[in-house]
């Protein structure tokens, strides 16, 4: 095979036939309001952590919803849970509960109650 000098990258397509969208149901079970999100970006705009770094709650939530879990755990670690997003969310999404539950699901080995 000819060496073209570059590698064809792995497909960046989001393949919804393969992705596991069921994990999101676990969030919805606990936080029914999560489904109401219209991705307006008010949460990520007001975010205290986003002042310092490129943390984007809306994106993390969306990725989780679409089954793209890669590197989400470390992204979630940036959240300070300050609650500004929840105060503003025009759809009344309990954003803090979404974060909390995503965190527990992704980091389950760490966060077990006594």
């Amino acid at each position: 095979m000819k060496n073209w000098g570059f590698k064809i990258p792995d497909s960046r397509t989001l393949d919804l036939d393969k992705e596991d969208l069921k994990l999101y149901n676990k969030i919805v079970e606990k936080v029914p309001s999560a489904r109401r999100c219209i991705m307006c970006g008010m949460c990520s705009a007001t975010c205290s952590a986003a002042n310092h770094t490129n943390f984007n709650f809306r994106l993390v939530h969306h990725k989780f919803r679409m089954g793209m879990f890669e590197s989400l755990a470390s992204e979630l670690d940036k959240c300070m849970l300050c609650g500004k997003c929840r105060m503003l969310c025009p759809r009344g999404v309990n954003t803090r509960a979404v974060i909390y539950n995503m965190r527990i699901i992704l980091d389950n080995m760490y966060y077990k109650n006594i």
Binding site: P32, L81, C82, G92, N94, R96, A97, Y100
Partner: peptide
């Protein structure tokens, strides 16, 4: 009702 301590309670 806006307490930050409760991350479970829904808006309603």
């Amino acid at each position: 009702g806006g307490s930050l301590s409760n991350a479970i309670i829904e808006l309603e």
